[in-house]
Amino acid sequence: MADGMKLQFVVDDGDFTRAGETSSKVKKTLTQLGFSPEVIRKVAIAMYEGEINMVIHANGGTIDVEISSEKILIIMQDRGPGIADIERAMQAGFSTADSKVRELGFGAGMGLPNMKKYSDEMEITTEIGKGTCVKLTINVKG
């Protein structure tokens, strides 16, 4: 297993055509490294939601992924407006996405709840006007 492997990606602002590419690359890497389908699925879903959020709400940003045999750590740092009320943002169904985004099949208020559901630990730090950082940990079980 590749202990301590680190990857970094840049997510472009507003580029829906490329959303999912980072998750896809990480998924491929994890598959090559022999992680279980269950772990890979959790990472793929949680990361994809994060990527979409960064494109929809947050002017893009960076995603760092640290892979070890114990856990997979995903750090998503954006340049967005920050989250005014995290508790509300975590409620399934709450979204500030506009109608254009909703037409594309997003903006149903499931992003953050899905990230929580498919990770083992989730930590959000946010500053209004500066950006948000979401840290996700997915444990790798024997």
């Binding site: 829906f16 055509t17 959303a19 999912g20 590419e21 998750s23 896809s24 389908p37 879903i45 994809y48 939601e49 979409i52 594309l104 099949g105 997003f106 149903a108 499931m110 992003g111 899905n114 559901k117 498919y118």
Partner: peptide, 28 residues
């Protein structure tokens, strides 16, 4: 058609039926 739901509900080897036509369908 809701991509966040589809992402978590479509399982490997499933047929996915949707009316979404945008590029994110491919990513999901």
């Amino acid at each position: 058609d809701l991509l966040s739901l589809a992402m978590s509900r479509v399982m490997a080897d499933n047929v996915w039926i949707t009316i979404q036509t945008n590029i994110n369908v491919v990513a999901v």
